[in-house]
């Protein structure tokens, strides 16, 4: 479990806060997403939770460890995948993982198995410096699982990856979550958040604007629309109708009864549209 109360952080300690009065809780086994544009304070908050940045103000408990009391033991329980790949370029993929295995006090996963899991099978003995950006990212991602973490922190886990690799990464995250791993991820990709997260927090200018599940957000902020394509006098007509307004409902019924329907989709608002609606800001 992660518990954060009234968290503040200022890099220059000059009263200008990059994280302001942030409070939230993440339950065990939950996938929680921190969503916001670049510079919103996502990574700052993440780095405080992992211990990369010192806790200046507020109360933070991660996996039962109060961050005010420094304990290296807690790192046995957490894993972190960085947005920027950070592996030893002069060591091979396997040497990289083997080295990190020796730094933990808990049973670790086999390096070969991890490399296979992230699609780097056969690249065990290739120096990481010779890897492509995507391969380095997968190696960094594999390393974050090495200690079988209970709390898994993922900083922009799919940013810059091609769609097939991103899909693999998402599958692994889902699989780990099914095994009971608590996931805290930051992203500015709302599709990733929508697909993976049980709950999301919108963060802008260091402040949390809203926390809820993607489903609730869509129900609350999305317009209930249906998009219909039908044939009329040999032509394809496309129209969007509300499922709430009485006249639109009647129109929809008439189209279904008297025309040949080509396609019909309910049109939910995307998380990105909701984000813009709630925060008044875009995600880039």
């Amino acid at each position: 479990m992660i518990s954060v109360k009234n968290l503040y952080h200022s890099y220059n300690k000059d009263g200008k806060y990059q994280v302001k009065d942030v409070s939230f809780e993440v339950a065990n086994g939950e996938v929680f997403g921190f969503l916001g544009p670049s510079g919103a304070g996502k990574s700052t908050a993440l780095n405080i939770l992992t211990g990369l940045l010192p806790l200046q103000q507020g109360e933070v408990v991660v996996g039962g460890y109060d961050l005010k009391k420094v304990s290296n033991e807690r790192f046995n329980k957490i894993g972190m995948s960085f947005e920027q790949s950070n592996v030893y370029s002069k060591l091979t993929a396997k040497e990289n993982l083997d080295f990190y295995r020796k730094l933990f006090d808990v049973p670790t996963l086999d390096s070969h198995a991890l490399l296979k899991l992230v699609g780097l099978e056969g690249k065990e003995h290739v120096k990481a410096g010779e890897f492509s950006k995507g391969m380095k990212h997968r190696l960094t991602f594999a390393r974050s699982m090495i200690n079988n973490p209970e709390m898994w922190f993922l900083d922009e886990p799919t940013t810059g990856l091609d769609p097939s690799i991103a899909a693999d990464i998402k599958d692994i995250i889902k699989e780990k979550n099914k095994e009971g791993v608590t996931v805290f991820l930051t992203t500015h990709n709302m599709f990733i958040a929508d697909e993976l997260c049980d709950r999301v927090a919108f963060i802008v200018d260091g402040e949390i604007k809203l926390i809820d599940s993607p489903k609730n957000l869509k129900l609350q902020y999305g317009d209930k629309l249906v998009e219909v394509e039908y044939m009329e006098k040999g032509e394809v007509i496309k129209t969007t109708l509300s499922t709430v307004l009485p006249e639109d409902k009647r129109e929809l019924q008439k189209i279904i009864e008297h025309h040949d329907i080509q396609t019909m989709h309910t049109k939910e608002a995307t998380l990105e549209e909701i984000f813009i609606k709630v925060t008044g800001r875009g995600l880039v």
Partner: peptide
Amino acid sequence: VEEKADNTLSAINLTPAG
């Protein structure tokens, strides 16, 4: 310098090796 160039200090800092 190698640790800095590869940006690996942050990864080391998240292990139980103090």
